[in-house]
Design a protein around this nucleic acid. Structure first.
Lengths: 113, 113
DNA sequence: CCTTGACAGGTAGCTTGTCTACCTATGAAC
DNA sequence: GTTCATAGGTAGACAAGCTACCTGTCAAGG
């Protein structure tokens, strides 16, 4: 399952992983992979631009830090990002409930017609 | 909620409404609106090209019929379309379960940390 | 006859957002 | 100094939905 299916929901996932604490880009990709049991395996070319989008929107803030002599850009949720995440969560719930009406049950599992 | 959020799932919804019986394009749009309590209000410019996509893929078959002197193109699920729908259903379940891991619960609803 | 509005089908071009492919750089192993 | 894992980044391709527009029928109002 690639991010093409996520279209429009990727930003929400990014905010969600950052909710547990600040991470750098590569670690975000690994967190996504780990928490999804390998189902979400995103390319850097997908995640980095998305992170920059979120930063432009003010939902995350980034800072350079040097770890083991390596430059890493660490991303952190802002207050606006936290609000945006709450918003996206309810948006997701509405979206998934709506789609589920069409896809969660087939004709065989319908009660009587 | 617009179809931009549906990205990649629209085809599945279209197949799902056609599962209950053949419909013409306009009626599909109305069925989507009705079954979603108005949440899915798709433009013809969204649905017609999608239908043509599905027809090219062999998932639906269309036929012209004249009703009340009006030409209507009626779409019907093919066997391949039925298989594709079953496929999309399981894809949807996996997708929604995966995203839900990140978005269905906030830190407040987490048990202990 | 002409206009307006609901119904019905259709297309072109724009925009957004992800993907592919590529590049730079450090530190460790060989 | 080559290769691998880690880490950050960009350009251009591509898919798919959106906006705006067009054609046409039928019914109502003038």
């Amino acid at each position: 399952m690639n991010a093409q299916a996520l279209h429009g929901h990727l930003d929400a996932l990014l905010l969600a992983v950052l909710e547990r604490g600040a991470l750098h880009g590569y670690a975000i990709i690994e967190a996504l992979r780990a928490r999804s049991d390998g189902r979400l395996d995103l390319a850097t070319g997908t995640v980095y631009p998305a992170l920059r989008r979120l930063e432009r929107a003010g939902h995350v803030a980034s800072a350079w830090s040097t770890v083991n002599g390596r430059e890493r850009r660490t991303y952190e949720l802002t207050d606006a990002g936290r609000r945006a995440l709450a918003d996206q969560r309810s948006g997701w719930r509405e979206f998934s409930a709506t789609v589920a009406r069409f896809l969660d049950s087939g004709p065989s599992s319908a009660p009587a017609g």
